[in-house]
């Protein structure tokens, strides 16, 4: 139902002074239904561009994207997005932001309110429902954005560095919540991060990306998240010698590919 298939995707942006930048070049990627794919890479390697293509915000230069077997031609409620910068609506209160998708779908007010409070509790913001969003801190606003995407209940969740603005404690709690939501709902997730540990902990598949041109340099099937769901002990999973060894290996690889990119620039 919610499988994502990306075939031969390339995105080139024209530069204002003439010339082109190849944000993505020849991307092939298949995320099975219920898969958790994490794109990992230094900034500028095209992660956000790839997410924007799946969401339908960018028409690619070439290639195509299928979601649940249908070609992506526009944004739609089947693909929920958590933005790198929250993109909340400041004229709505916290709970109205969270329940914005259900409002558009015609859900009754009382039901929307209940749903919003449930999702707010999930992201640790119980008691913030009636606050204006601009009175929240950056990390709190980011979590409202996550609750908003969850409340709309999409088949596919697209998350662009959703936990980057959070403190370490909240980030770990949110990672665990996300795994639980994912396991319970069977959603397909495409998740962006530049954190190696986060990628390995969450993913069923990690794709390491490299810049100029943006491309996938390594695909790595992992299952640490499943192990967490069995044991509910995140520290044990993350301090496992196998986890640490893989983390160091992938970190070296991300470092190397970022350096390649910088070399290509120089």
């Amino acid at each position: 139902m919610g499988a994502v298939s990306i075939q031969g995707l390339s995105v080139s942006f024209p530069l204002p002074g003439g010339g082109w930048i190849d944000a993505l070049s020849g991307i092939d990627l298949a995320i099975p239904e219920g898969g958790f794919c994490v794109a990992l890479g230094a900034s500028g390697c095209g992660k956000t561009t790839l997410l924007n293509c799946i969401a339908g915000f960018i028409a690619p230069s070439s290639g195509r994207i299928l979601v649940a077997g249908r070609e992506v031609s526009a944004p739609g409620a089947d693909r929920g997005v958590v933005f790198q910068k929250h993109a909340l609506l400041p004229w709505l209160s916290v709970w109205e932001n969270v329940a914005f998708g259900p409002l558009l779908a015609g859900m009754k007010r009382a039901e929307r309110r209940r749903l919003a409070e449930e999702k707010l509790a999930l992201v640790g913001l119980a008691g913030f429902a009636d606050r204006p969003v601009w009175t929240l801190s950056g990390g709190q606003q980011q979590r409202v954005g996550i609750a908003r995407a969850l409340a709309a209940d999409p088949q596919v969740l697209l998350m662009d560095e959703p936990f980057a603005a959070l403190d370490a404690l909240t980030r770990e709690a949110m990672q665990e919540h996300l795994l639980e939501v994912w396991a319970a709902s069977g959603k397909t997730v495409f998740f962006i991060t530049h954190g190696v540990e986060e990628a390995l902990f969450l993913a069923t598949e990690v794709v390491v990306m490299s810049p100029r041109p943006g491309r996938i340099v390594r695909r790595l099937p992992v299952s640490f998240g499943r192990r967490y769901l069995e044991t509910r002990n995140a520290r044990a999973v993350k301090s496992d010698p196998a986890f640490i060894a893989l983390r160091e290996e992938v970190l070296a690889e991300v470092r190397a590919s970022a350096r390649d990119g910088a070399g290509a620039l120089a």
Binding site: G56, G76, A87
Partner: peptide, 15 residues
């Protein structure tokens, strides 16, 4: 209007 706000609404299903 911020483009992200429009995109957010569209991917929440706005007509």
């Amino acid at each position: 209007v911020a483009p992200e706000q429009v995109n957010a609404a569209l991917s929440l299903g706005a007509t």
